[in-house]
Design a protein around this nucleic acid. Structure first.
Lengths: 171, 171
DNA sequence: GCAAAATGGTTAACTATTAAACTATCTGCC
DNA sequence: GGCAGATAGTTTAATAGTTAACCATTTTGC
């Protein structure tokens, strides 16, 4: 915080603002959550995205689920789904099954191993979530959720017009 | 939502809760912010983490800044700093200079190109931040910031005891 | 009925990120 | 003085994510 002379316009730093503080807080908040969830899931030989994948497949699997569907649900690009599923298939957590009626398509389902892992995690998961959000009381948690959802859903007008290679990148 | 018979305990789905909704919202909020900031920074041939790096170096560079210092400021692992800086050095945005008094250490500084890019971005950055946070009014933005900071700082008791290979992973 | 367009998935190349293992240098202490 | 341990940085091997380019099938439209 010493030298301040010389340079011309370089020292007019970026102005702070509520908008900037909010964006920074969102990014940091995510980082904090990730740093807590990472080691927790590692204990089950999973990563956070893989856990998300498992829960989504579980939730949808009353009927056949395609990989594209998973991409849309997880807000993640289709190529990424391919590689994540390949790893999870190697770990025998999920299975890909060709759709006999449309040979382009592959359905994804949990193996028994995947199901039972999910059940095992769920037994302790609520407790972990409580731990992560321990800084806030119940009403503050709801408030936070509400504000973030408002932030999120302000953009995303007509919620599915995409479909290029990537996800919602309609550019 | 049809078949519901067979399986034993598999259908008792994971229970929702304020804690879970909050964590999910934080993750989604981050995703939404990223999807907006990515293309914006791409316009300047930068990525969001690279922009963060530039701003931190700019803020600190009144005195020599080591790479380790940057890792702590950015909450990012030291190896990651190495590779990010290598790319940014190749792009001539920053420069590494050996500390003559301690040859292990390297100081990092912005090049003129880095400085001027940062200035160029700052001219329109506030507007971009306003756009991203457009769903919330000013007081809601402050509220969101406050809640997230409360969430974040609940953990992190004695704020710097780390230093292994990674970041704050004192495990 | 067939060619063009759309759809589902994969591969390739890149950035970001981590943990673990390694190199180089410096410091403390006997 | 010299070695043990600490400190700064890098390399390696993973996972996750992106876009762009590609292959295979299916649908459409004439």
């Amino acid at each position: 915080m010493t030298a301040k002379a010389a340079q011309p316009d370089l020292r007019d730093d970026f102005p702070d603002s509520p908008a900037r503080r909010a964006v920074v807080a969102v990014v940091r908040g995510f980082g904090a959550v990730q740093r807590q969830m990472g080691p927790y899931f590692a204990q089950f030989d999973l990563t956070p995205p893989q856990f998300q994948m498992l829960t989504v497949i579980h939730r949808l699997q009353d009927e056949p689920v395609s990989q594209r569907r998973l991409g849309r649900e997880l807000y993640v690009s289709f190529p990424n789904i391919t590689v994540m599923l390949s790893r999870m298939e190697a770990a025998k957590l999920i299975r890909r099954r060709a759709n006999p009626l449309d040979r382009r398509e592959k359905f994804v389902e949990l193996t028994r191993r995947g199901e039972s892992l999910l059940n095992r995690i769920w037994k302790v998961h609520q407790q972990q979530l409580e731990h992560v959000t321990a800084g806030l009381n119940s009403s503050e948690r709801e408030q936070l959720t509400g504000l973030l959802n408002k932030l999120i859903f302000h953009h995303v007008p007509e919620e599915s017009k995409m479909e290029t290679t990537g996800v919602h990148s309609k550019t």
